[in-house]
Amino acid sequence: MKAKTQRLYLVVGALVALGGAGVLALSTLGDTATYFYSPSDLAAKGLPDAAIRLGGMVEQGSLVRQGQTVRFVVTDFAKTYPVTYTGILPDLFREGQGVIAEGRIDRAAGVFHAETILAKHDEKYMPPEVTKSLKAAKPAVGQVL
């Protein structure tokens, strides 16, 4: 076998082994690499006492403002969880959009007390006129602008 061919097999073999090791490592990492839990995760895995992040969509019509405090419901369209937060909200925070709340679960009250709120947006990009015409054509599209 030529030295060249030998080196080629060596490199390919090493990369395959490395890839296998990577797959094993990633599958072990699994959920611990997740940045936030969905309401369904909370329902399935029980409610931890530690500080966690809860993420999902802000349910349409669930937002209530009382001075500096807001209440809303996070949904993943399977399960929901109520959240309270006092403070300044990010600009992109709105009903029907993604949100990640960092805080703790209050078991007694069944409420998630958020200390930080991050807005999560989706992968769609379009000009405002398009959504306006979409809304004009179909008022049921409930995007809050």
Partner: peptide
């Protein structure tokens, strides 16, 4: 693979 703050691919 994971829940992330970064959105999915556009």
């Amino acid at each position: 693979w994971w829940n992330t703050l970064h959105q999915g691919p556009s």
